[in-house]
Nucleic acid binder design. Structure first.
Length: 821
DNA sequence: TAGAAGGGTATCTAGACAGCATGTC
DNA sequence: CTAGATACCCTTCTA
């Protein structure tokens, strides 16, 4: 089918497609159009990655808009939201407005109802439904990208319920579900009352094979010799071989999938020695530049290691990287500057990074519940292999698994190459999922009775798949019971209603169990305030340094961290709320303390906690006793409670946050907790969200901890001690600059407006441009930094780098960390 | 005698969504 | 029921 023959699209679109070089539709696309895609017909397209799924979605959305409608594109990842937005924006010149809405990004702040196409994550859509977004019932077309993710234990149910809600809100809604090739696409299509287009067609051929001995055997019967010398490994040989090329197409990049971050990093280190040999002179300087940019992103070991690999043309990629790291690496790989990426599964599900060759090195991954190495799902391996083949560059893509012996080779062929992907199975009946979604369903008025709930659930994929119709009813009863006991819903005869708190919890997008934990903790704090403050006061007066803290363990190190920064104006703000009450205990400590609050939100099921590594158990058990008065709620017993372990993990996570707001350097945090820069950002982000929710709940329940919660939250947001909150709120001023300014005597936003410019310039290490931007952001009348000389600054403006680690100090700290064990 | 090579062992393990409300003299 | 790569340390061998 020719694009020129397409009907029902906004004027100009078929021509625009032709100008893009798309004259003929790919077979699956044509099939979709024949099935009524552009006439508003619902459709499930189960086709391989990179076979033109996006155009299928675009045709549906554009034709829907042409009929005066509005389309929603649901993505599984925030990174994909921006990618899709950028893609759809090429239709803007034909009058199509595109908007994005995710947790951390809302386009322009322009209200979404004016947009024709909206891109959002499934959670965001769910949240918008819960909050009654005005434009929800104007939707005429919904695209669900990667719909096979309904199978995901954690996030699948959200997508499933959201689609069910959208369909109920608008019975004529066109649903276009894009799926990887899965076993039971037909079942998904039945669920959505949609036509099914299923195909294995790919625009670029994919050759799948297994490397064993000195050759890759491909599924099509062909072989490619890739000798592996004695003592040499398979992966570098394959990467080098791809770079050698064979005259066909371009020099070949490789994507290597491994099963852990550490493996990704060490593999990248090894691959760098291979890629280095193929880097041209021009590329070398570009790579050096890129490496510098990467070092600039964050001052951590991860960043340094990545930069070192990148300088030689290789990289690693995993969730421990900062978002900027990832983008830099992905872009450079697409530009063919980076020749090889060693990645964990992040990359298989993320943005589009095609490669000439894909090597799936590890096809098993550790799984604690399983009790060992568990083989990856066929679907997952197929997703990785599907990344092979760069359009316009490669004649075909090659995806290679590695085998050590002939048996393994045969097994891999059997298990992954000849095999069909697993069936998609709904995970909705899991209690945690229903807890959240039943409350939301009641709160946003989709159902008011048990019967109504079950009727609603009957529209989900789960209902069409289960062979045990009783089960859903049982779990529903248990969940309703839980929600009632915790005061989120109440019964009045047959009718179920969400309580005011229940409504809030639903709108805040909290797991009810998280909300219950937070409420319990805050109420407990209100009840024990005086007693705990007294305990804290008894301990605080310059507790003589216990001999132990000098040399031995973690908590000792933690203490040091807080001494790093010159103590600012502690106190002064008074305790929260009701001073003046005769019964109140007099102290200048706030209660609850930040650590108490961080621990509270960290032990919530909405926070993904850090692992306890060896030695951590003792470290944090000790910390647990030391800080006992700060925890909100009963501390489980070290000996009797199985929950103790989880409590400690939460403590470790909370401690990370405390370090963060104690202005401990990023590289020390990554080192101390064994995490990457990306993990810090992640923890901080969820803590921000949960503390925001806690603040809201506290104010709604009229608890006087609101103030303490708000401050703890703001400090997490900026990563600073309290005396810097004002400064750090200025655009362009982060935790580092705020500290420098403060130490130079510029202590507030007002100071920024009035202080001597040379003083400010000196504090910012003479960076004129940034200084000027900051002054503008602070609202200074004459922000210009021209003709200001930092050397004019008074001596006290450039102190002895107080509050900063000197190289010596850092070395000492590292030494003491070595003593740990 | 430095350094390679080999062997035993302790350690550790993928990913990532969400609220709210706006700012300044 | 069901792990395996790596880093690190120690010992031994070798030029």
């Amino acid at each position: 089918m020719r694009t020129a023959d397409l009907t029902g699209l906004p004027t100009g679109i078929p021509e625009a497609l032709r100008d893009e070089g798309i004259e003929e539709l790919y077979p699956p696309q044509a099939e979709a159009v024949e099935a009524g895609l552009t006439d508003g017909e619902s459709l499930v397209a189960a086709v391989p990655t990179a076979s033109g799924k996006t155009l299928i979605a675009e045709l549906a959305m554009l034709s829907s808009v042409a009929r005066g409608g509005k389309a929603l594109y649901i993505v599984p990842l925030r990174a994909l939201a921006s990618e899709k937005k950028a893609e759809f924006e090429r239709w803007e010149e034909y009058g199509i407005d595109v908007g994005v809405s995710t947790g951390n990004y809302e386009s322009d702040g322009e209200w979404l109802s004016s947009r024709d196409i909206i891109v959002a994550t499934s959670e965001k859509v769910d949240s918008l439904v819960r909050n009654n977004a005005a434009w929800m019932d104007q939707l005429t077309c919904v695209v669900a990208d990667e719909v096979h993710l309904v199978d995901d234990r954690h996030r699948g149910p959200t997508l499933e319920v959201t689609l069910a809600k959208l369909r109920r809100l608008n019975p004529n809604l066109q649903v276009v579900a894009l799926s990887a090739t899965v076993g039971n696409a037909g079942v998904v299509a039945d669920w959505l009352d949609a036509e099914l287009v299923k195909s294995d067609w790919r625009p670029i051929d994919l050759k799948m094979g297994v490397h064993y001995g000195n050759a890759v055997s491909f599924a099509d019967g062909s072989q490619r010799e890739v000798p592996v010398g004695r003592g040499e490994r398979q992966t570098p040989a394959l990467v080098a071989d791809a770079l050698e090329g064979d005259g066909e197409g371009d020099q070949g990049s490789s994507l290597v999938f491994v099963n852990s971050r550490r493996n990704a990093e060490s593999a990248a280190r090894r691959m760098a020695d291979v890629t280095e040999r193929y880097v041209t002179g021009d590329e070398r300087s570009d790579l050096a530049e890129l490496a510098a940019e990467i070092r600039d992103v964050s001052d951590t070991e991860t960043s340094e290691d990545l930069a070192n690999a990148v300088a030689k043309g290789a990289a690693f990629h995993h969730a421990g990287l900062a978002a900027e790291h990832r983008t830099l690496v992905e872009d450079a790989f697409r530009d063919r500057l980076i020749k090889c990426i060693c990645a964990t599964p992040t990359l298989a599900a993320g943005v589009n990074t095609p490669s000439r060759r894909v090597v799936v090195r590890d096809w098993q991954r550790y799984d604690g519940d399983y009790g060992g190495m568990k083989p990856l799902d066929v679907l997952e391996v197929h997703q990785m292999m599907g990344r092979a083949g760069r359009p316009g560059l490669d004649p075909y893509g090659e995806a290679v698994l590695l085998a050590k012996d002939a048996d393994a080779r045969d097994e891999l062929f059997e298990r992954y190459i000849w095999a069909d992907a697993e069936d998609v199975r709904s995970k909705l009946a899991a209690e945690p999922a229903l807890r959240t979604h039943l409350l939301a369903t009641v709160a946003s008025g989709f159902a008011h009775t048990r019967e109504g709930l079950l009727e609603f659930l009957d529209q989900t994929l789960y209902a069409t798949q289960t062979d045990d119709p009783e089960r859903l009813g049982q779990v529903t009863d248990r969940v309703l019971d839980y929600l009632e006991v915790n005061g989120f819903v109440e019964f009045e005869g047959e009718t179920i209603r969400a309580t005011p708190v229940g409504h809030t919890v639903s709108r805040l997008y909290l797991d009810p169990m998280s909300a219950a934990e937070i409420i319990d903790g805050l109420e407990w704090a209100a009840d024990h305030r005086n007693e705990k403050l007294r305990a804290l006061a008894d301990e605080t007066p310059e507790k003589p340094k216990r001999d132990r803290s000098e040399s031995d363990d973690g908590p000792g190190g933690f203490q040091r961290a807080s001494e790093m920064v010159a103590a600012g104006g502690e106190g002064g703000d008074g305790a929260d709320g009701g001073d003046g009450d005769a019964d109140e205990f007099e102290t200048d400590r706030t209660y609850p303390t930040p650590l108490g609050l961080y621990h509270l939100v960290c032990r919530t099921p909405d926070m993904y906690q850090l692992y306890l590594k060896s030695g951590d158990r003792e470290t944090y058990t000790e910390l647990c006793y030391e800080r006992e008065p700060e925890f909100l709620g009963r501390v489980p017993s070290e000996y009797e409670d199985v929950a103790f372990e989880d409590w400690l993990s939460a403590l470790k996570t909370a401690k990370l946050l405390e370090d963060w707001v104690g202005e401990v350097d990023e590289d020390r945090i990554t080192e101390r907790y064994g995490v990457g820069p990306g993990d810090i950002r992640g923890k901080v982000e969820t803590a921000e969200w949960l503390l925001g929710a806690a603040e809201r709940l506290a104010s709604e329940l009229d608890l006087d901890s609101v103030y303490a919660v708000r401050e703890a939250k703001k400090r997490v947001e900026y990563g600073v001690r309290e005396e810097l909150l004002d400064l750090a709120g200025v655009r362009g001023v982060g935790r580092k600059r705020a500290r420098r300014l403060f130490e130079a005597g510029v202590e507030s936003r007002a100071d920024l407006r009035e202080a001597d410019k040379s003083r400010i310039l000196a504090a910012l290490r003479g960076r004129r441009k940034t200084a000027q931007n900051i002054l503008e952001a602070a609202g200074r009348k004459d922000p210009s930094m021209d003709e200001v000389d930092e050397d004019d600054a008074p001596d006290d403006a450039v102190p002895d780098d107080a509050g900063f680690e000197t190289a010596k100090e850092r070395a000492d700290q590292q030494a003491s960390l070595g003593d740990f064990e």
